[in-house]
């Protein structure tokens, strides 16, 4: 009997301690169904949703595919012309020249939030690159996007006495981009009593930089609603 009496407070203490413990565990970052969403701000799951929708639209776009086919024909003709003119075409260029070079341009943030648009642009770039449709450049990028300064720095190494001259990169070998991905994000909010609504509209375009014409455009509005609790403020 006494033993049982001793067990009771011990069990209660154990229950208390376990309820106080904080648990941090990994979850599937692409699972938008369980993701915690900010009521009034963009959330991680919003980026997952827009990336998936825009990626699907891009990969199935017949007009973008027309552009890619035309680019391939033009690139093939340009390579033959350059070779005929005596220009030395590297094997790497022959392998990759049939795909346009993509540059991540500026995503205009028309919201009052601090938004890192790289969460969208770099994911879309990854989808496009892994689909085998485009190459991408890290030499040039729009405002807010990442640039890899190493390409420019590598050309300055030729002045370094420790560098083997033959391995130093030459000037005039970096490729100019053909395509740019740009866009704008617009936020709208609405409130009626305790009902709140928030939406983000994403307008994305791919532009053929040789002509300035758009080859793909996409608009998507992501809308979320929540009802404020009667006692919350």
């Amino acid at each position: 009997m006494k033993f049982r009496l001793l067990l009771l407070p011990a069990a209660a203490l154990a229950a208390l301690l376990s309820s106080c413990a904080t648990d941090s565990h990994y979850v599937d970052a692409t699972d938008t169904t369980v993701a915690v969403k900010n009521k009034n701000r963009m959330s991680s799951s919003d980026w997952v949703v827009i990336t998936q929708d825009a990626g699907n639209a891009l990969l199935a776009s017949p007009l973008f595919e027309e552009y890619l086919e035309a680019y391939r024909i033009d690139a093939e003709a340009a390579l033959k012309e350059a070779e005929a003119a005596g220009e030395k075409i590297t094997t790497r260029e022959k392998l990759t020249a049939m795909k346009p070079l993509l540059m991540l341009s500026t995503i205009q943030n028309n919201t009052s939030e601090h938004i890192d648009s790289k969460l969208l642009t770099e994911r879309l770039r990854e989808i496009l690159f892994n689909s085998g449709k485009v190459r991408f450049t890290t030499y040039a990028a729009g405002e807010g996007q990442s640039i890899d300064a190493a390409t420019a720095q590598a050309r300055q190494l030729k002045n370094d006495p420790n560098i083997k001259k033959r391995t130093a990169l030459k000037k005039g070998t970096v490729h100019a981009y053909d395509l740019s991905l740009a866009g704008v994000i617009i936020k709208q909010t609405a409130q009626d009593g305790r009902n709140n609504e928030m939406s983000y509209t994403f307008n994305l375009t791919l532009t053929d930089n040789s002509t300035g014409e758009g080859v793909w455009t996409y608009s998507k509005e992501i809308k979320r609603q929540h009802k404020q609790g009667a006692l919350s403020w």
Binding site: D28, T30, D31, T32, T33, V34, V48, V49, T51, Q52, G55, N56, L59, A60, R123, E126, I127, N130
Partner: peptide, 22 residues
Amino acid sequence: TNLSAWRTVQIKPGETVFFKSV
């Protein structure tokens, strides 16, 4: 890929939805 993610869809009674993926 980034195209593979759990998503939710709300379906009204009698409504037909189209789950689509490329």
